[in-house]
Write a protein that binds this DNA or RNA. Structure first.
Lengths: 215, 215
DNA sequence: ATAAGAAATGAGTGAGTGCTCACTTTACGA
DNA sequence: TCGTAAAGTGAGCACTCACTCATTTCTTAT
């Protein structure tokens, strides 16, 4: 996992990168500090110069997720797609969103694995995640919905929390299924699959909009 | 985690029950055999009479998920809800499904945590899960869709894989969000939330069916 | 009642862990 | 060039854990 530049001692960065790689592969407890040190090409003692304990490495990874990836990658492009679309229709926005999230999740996949696992067992990590990413995404989505309603592209009485929760679920499910099964085909296959997923997010599993309807 | 009766030595059952409790709380690697033994009220050596290694306990848990819970709980009621509904409309079926899955997931929550975590790191567990539960659920869903299409309740050109994937994502997201935040209110709150989720699964985030339409 | 085998025990073992610390190397201003 | 502080090292320490096995307890057939 190659991290973007960030003011931080060379070795510390190497340690975090190595830790992300190893922990994402084997889980936190199954990873050893000696292995991380080996991959990072530092002595084991060096790890404990930068991180007080092993658990502290996890915290370091989370801080990175939030500071380096969270803000610039996760939220910025999310916001751009949802809020800078004066002339686009809802369908292309949702499609752009799904595509962008897919690419992002693939890019930070090792980190995602760690967060998904550890958030289940550490309250503090879950808290950071919620505070810095989930609740802020929710806010952005609410703004987005307001705008869409104003432009007549979304139904005004859809609950925004339920909607964003559903979209979140769809995105994650799309990613996981593609990642574990699927993706057997080529690029065209992906586009088609994407379109299907977008259709269902837009119109559900039952209804299809009347031809020429405003939605 | 109280398991249903199943032909198996008393102590072995106790060990698995204890293991589910402890592993779901702390994760597999952070759980110790001595702690499991203590909770199960057996000597540590007894564990290794029934399970060759510690990892073998995990396999025992998975076998239980599949044999005891998987077939009778996960698939049976799934099938009943989807396929024994000659007179019900699509909306009530989906609502019943979502409700049933929620109750089920809550009942086997500790086991779910273990499976969700360990499936990320062990190929064999992911394989069992896919073979015994996911692919079979998919088959059931395909039958269901065929029936719904025949009865004119679902659009025939919705891809069944995409649809079941989406429903899966919605169910899981609904569960997780309710479990970690929400559920702050009472029962009425839950019903309302359920209805919102069902609406979105049915009609998506954009369109709403015309009043009196057949869907 | 007793023998014999099965089940259960838990102290013991050694491999392997996170972490320390006495030491070496590097960076750099005077 | 040297002195000093910071950065880096890795052998070793204390400890934990999965697993073993000699011993005890239970079960049951005769």
């Amino acid at each position: 996992m190659q991290l973007p530049d960030f003011k931080m001692p060379e070795k510390q960065k190497k340690i975090i990168e190595a830790a992300i790689t190893i922990i994402s592969e084997k889980g936190f407890n199954a990873s050893t500090t000696s292995e991380i040190a080996r991959l990072a090409c530092v002595a084991e003692g060096t790890i404990f110069r930068y991180f007080k304990t092993k658990k502290d490495i996890l915290r370091g990874i989370m801080i990175h997720l939030v500071n380096v990836m969270g803000e610039p990658l996760v939220l910025e492009s999310f916001q751009k797609i949802l809020l800078n679309n004066d002339e686009k229709d809802l369908r292309s926005i949702i499609k752009a969103l799904l595509k962008d999230r897919f690419v992002l999740m693939e890019a930070i996949y090792p980190m995602l694995r760690i967060v998904a696992t550890e958030a289940m067992y550490h309250d503090d990590i879950r808290e950071i995640l919620h505070e810095k990413i989930i609740s802020r995404s929710n806010d952005i989505f609410k703004l987005f919905q307001k705008e869409m309603v104003a432009r007549g592209l979304m139904d005004k009485d859809i609950d925004p929390s339920a909607a964003s929760r559903s979209i979140f679920g769809n995105i994650v499910a799309f990613f996981i299924f593609r990642k574990t099964y699927g993706s057997a085909g080529e690029q065209g296959d992906f586009e088609q699959d994407l379109d299907r997923a977008v259709d269902i997010i837009m119109y559900g599993i039952a209804a299809r909009p009347v031809q020429g309807a405003k939605y």
